[in-house]
Design a protein around this nucleic acid. Structure first.
Length: 834
RNA sequence: GGGAGUAUGGCGGAACUGGUAGACGCGCCGGAUUCAAAAUCCGGUCACUUCGGUGGUGUGGGUUCGAUUCCCUCUACUCCUACCA
């Protein structure tokens, strides 16, 4: 019986089998070694995109492979279901965001099912479900009671378009990451989590994360931004108060020529109360966008230099001093800091060099470039002659002895503001009693659910306006109270979802013993865009929950893999408008759109709606099937690099899958008397082993190339009838197994010709390959290869060199030359030096 | 400004701890099949060449019998970050 490859029938068939037999339901079998593979869960935006397809395909390869390797695999999926888009859609469609969200989840789940992923859907979660978020309300209360969550007045980034507070990380170049609107400053009372308490641990534990990309670790390390230095008090000459500054270069103290404080430093505020010019200056700094221009205002006071008797330093309010970092005050040493030098040159301040390069001869002068490298201290009394490190040590000791300051470590990392003025998020479980007390909601009152709203619109959806929800009473005193009307930042939900998968339907958030068995996640896979935010917050959450005695675990993700983007070439017509790929046709000399107008090809860019270079996975799966889509995702590009989508590429994948299908007919009609096919089988075996090695190394593109090779060898042997029927059967069974992680449907289809069982339940073994007796070695002259010969490995060096000397090609090449040296590397090369 | 990374045919990319550069896929060229085309199959495909060879992994140098691989220099591009004292 002969038939064409029909992906729709085949893929549906196997998906049904897997699902009917509950193949991918995870069991908790403590005798088995576990493997937890997780892809970053999606936001239910409406439908899946190619980025998802790539992400989940990569994860599925790992999950299926590990399963066949005998691991108890946990491979779950869920939905990061709170967020602004749902709210916006709800307002436009006048539907509750819940409806919109669950509708999207339904659609997207269907699409994921069609991809044939080996997911345990029984553990599915949606973070907008009260049974999920009630647990994080409890976490928050625990943190609140432990002093890890606190409230403070804070200037926040206010996005005037989205009407919401943005995290620092969500502000890019002073603009909102989503709306692109210029962000304004606004003072609000906000909830914060004390991530800063863990700065040191978050930094030092990065070293434990061996299976994380260095790039991500560096990014986190920079973000945490640890710097070691000192705080130094400068006495104000005119009165008894003082200014404390932070510096990482206390060794340059003798080169200090001014102090600078930020525009809202206490002293600046105090002086400005009596000085209208300063008030105006501070206002200018806040309102005008000065880019990199440095501006300062001499406030008329001076500070005493702590080590130079009688030396007074002018005090400036300056726009380049950050209020959030350190103490909002610095001492300026223009000779050794570029910013200070620029400032000094502008305001004609002294420049006193105190460090010079150790090889300096004669005069050392600073003009336009500060000297910030290693060197020797001079002009600095008791520090003279020391190197920078020694000088730092000595001066800090001196400062501490004189009791005018101390050693100090500073971090860039600031506490995590989690309040959001939005409806579609998890309510913060706090009540404000009429007597002013701020109380956590009682545990038996959890969850604090979101209210139902009939007519969802801009005004009705503000929790602050919903009095029947907002008004409550204190269960202890019966006093009137108001609920907190802000909701959590959605990074709150994604900071712990990987714990919930251990037992998603449990009354408690999770069991300790489950966490002990399943965590940490062995392989986490997602986009590099989460390198800092999500991953840092999750690491913090793990440490915080550990300290709240939920479990013993320091780090949630043992292995991390960040995949590249899916890109596509862009097209534009003559008027500069983007043209969708599906509307472009190729002609002899170029491309045209449907109406026949010339289309120019542009840069290859990340698929995005605005550039109209998006390919919908739906269309691809409909037309070619999941196996083809998966195969294409894994071919060619290494997973960490960008993958360029192309029509020819997807067509080639389809061709290959169809070709695989033809093996079934080929086998049924195959006849051969040949039994001498050992060398072919040996060849295939070593390819199988290479496929495994490449999977282990996360180089799926290389596995794909090896499978192509396997199929090519097989086809070649078949056409020449070199393979026995038995060997053919062996080859096809092995082929099914190595295909299983990549293209599981066609794998099962081929496998089903030989077995009643399922291929996914087979064990993946490494093949024993016989050692080859004959080796190919290259003969080089001066390192250039001239010939390749086949020899028996057992031959001695002398015998091999003899063969080489008598080789005709080599003889020719050696005419008129003297061999100086003969090098033989066993099994590899012979090199003759002439 | 600071940090990280990348550079190999027309394209995506291979090359194990230094040892036959260009595996595998795309594209292209030639042939078969076809009334013709698509599809399919077979062959070729780094460049130059007097067909003996010669050159070739961004640039220039170094180490080595031998370098895509190790070291230094420069160049280009990408990403992150940005007045963090």
């Amino acid at each position: 019986m002969s038939s064409r490859y029909n992906h729709k029938i085949i893929e549906k068939k196997w998906q049904d089998v897997w699902s009917d037999k509950d193949i991918f339901q995870t069991s908790k079998d403590l005798n088995k070694k576990k493997y937890y593979v997780l892809e970053m869960f999606p936001y239910p935006s409406g439908k899946i995109h190619m980025g998802h397809v790539r992400n989940y395909t990569l994860g599925d390869v790992v999950a299926r492979y590990k399963r066949m390797k005998g691991y108890n695999v946990l491979h779950p999926m869920g939905w990061d279901a709170f967020g602004l888009p749902a709210e916006n859609a709800a307002i436009t469609e006048k539907k509750h965001p819940e409806k919109w969200t669950y509708q999207n989840i339904k659609t997207m789940k269907n699409q994921l099912l069609q991809m044939g992923l080996s997911l345990d859907w029984n553990r599915e979660i949606a973070t907008c479900h009260p049974e999920y978020y009630k647990h994080e309300q409890k976490f928050f209360i625990d943190m609140f009671k432990a002093g890890l969550a606190y409230k403070k007045e804070a200037e926040v980034n206010w996005d005037p378009v989205d009407k919401t507070v943005l995290a620092n990380e969500q502000v890019i170049d002073g603009k909102g990451w989503r709306s692109g609107a210029v962000v304004e400053k606004k003072i609000l009372s906000q909830w914060f989590l004390k991530i800063s308490k863990y700065s040191d641990e978050l930094l030092s534990d990065l070293d434990k994360l061996e299976n994380w990309p260095n790039k991500v670790k560096t990014m986190q390390s920079n973000w945490i931004g640890k710097s070691i230095g000192a705080e130094i008090n400068f006495k104000i000459s005119e009165n008894k108060s003082h200014i404390t500054v932070f510096t990482t270069r206390p060794d340059t103290i003798f080169g200090a020529t001014f102090l600078a404080i930020s525009t809202d430093h206490d002293l600046a505020v105090r002086v400005s109360d009596q000085n209208d010019n300063l008030k105006k200056f501070i206002n200018d700094c806040k309102n005008l966008n000065h880019e990199k221009i440095k501006m300062g205002f001499d406030i008329g006071l001076t500070a005493d230099h702590p080590f130079i008797e009688g030396k007074k330093l002018p005090i400036y309010v300056a726009n380049f001093v950050l209020k959030e970092y350190g103490l909002g005050a610095i001492f300026g040493c223009p000779a050794h800091d570029q910013r200070d030098l620029d400032f000094a040159n502008q305001y004609n301040l002294d420049v006193i060099p105190v460090v010079m390069p150790s090889n300096t001869k004669g005069d050392f002068k600073i003009v336009k470039e500060a000297f910030t490298e290693e060197g020797v201290i001079f002009n600095s009394e008791f520090l003279n002659g020391l190197d920078i490190e020694e000088a730092k040590e000595k001066i800090i000791n001196e400062i501490e002895q004189k009791k005018i300051g101390r050693r100090k470590v500073n971090f860039k990392l600031r506490d995590w503001g989690i309040s959001r003025q939005r409806f579609w998020g998890c309510p913060i479980p706090i009540i404000y009693r009429e007597d002013g007390e701020v109380l956590a909601v009682e545990e038996d009152q959890l969850p604090v659910k979101l209210p139902n709203i009939e007519n969802f619109n801009e005004t009705s959806s503000k929790l602050n306006n919903i009095f029947e929800w907002k008004e409550t009473v204190c269960p202890k005193t019966g006093m009137k109270a108001f609920r907190e009307t802000d909701t959590f930042d959605t990074f709150f939900e994604s900071s712990w979802y990987y714990f919930r998968y251990c037992n998603s339907r449990l009354e408690k958030p999770f069991e300790k013993e489950d966490i002990k068995y399943w965590l940490p996640v062995d392989q986490y896979i997602g986009g590099i865009e989460h390198a800092i935010l999500h991953l840092l917050y999750s690491r913090f959450f793990t440490k915080a929950l550990r300290d709240l005695e939920y479990f013993e675990l320091d780090e949630p993700f043992k292995g991390l893999f960040t995949q590249g983007m899916v890109t596509h070439i862009t097209y534009r017509n003559k008027s500069g408008e983007w043209v969708e790929p599906k509307d472009v046709e190729k002609f002899k000399e170029g491309f045209r759109d449907k109406s026949g107008l010339i289309v120019e090809t542009g840069k290859v860019e990340k698929m995005s709606k605005s550039k109209k270079n998006v390919v919908d996975p739906n269309d691809i799966i409909e037309l070619y099937g999941a196996d083809t889509a998966r195969w294409f995702m894994l071919s060619d590009s290494p997973p960490e690099r960008d993958l360029q989508w192309s029509d020819t590429g997807i067509a080639a994948s389809f061709k290959f899958i169809s070709k695989l299908y033809e093996f079934i007919d080929k086998f049924n009609n195959y006849k051969s008397n040949n039994t001498d096919d050992d060398h072919i089988i040996e060849n295939l075996k070593s390819i199988i082993n290479e496929v495994s090695e490449n999977i282990e190394a996360f180089q799926f593109n290389k596995s794909v190339a090896k499978i192509y090779e396997y199929v090519n060898i097989l086809n070649d042997a078949l056409s020449k009838k070199k393979l026995s029927k038995n060997s053919f059967e062996w080859s096809l069974k092995k082929l099914s197994i190595i295909l299983q992680p990549f293209v599981p449907h066609i794998s099962e289809e081929i496998w089903s010709n030989f077995s009643e069982k399922l291929c996914i339940n087979e064990v993946w073994l490494s093949e024993k390959v016989k050692k080859k007796l004959n080796l190919k070695i290259a003969i080089q002259i001066n390192g250039k290869t001239k010939d390749v010969i086949e020899i028996d490995e057992k031959l001695s060096k002398e015998m091999i060199l003899d063969i080489v000397r008598n080789n005709n090609k080599i003889k020719k090449n050696l005419l008129g030359k003297n061999v100086i040296k003969e090098i033989y590397v066993p099994g590899k090369i012979v090199n003759l030096v002439v």
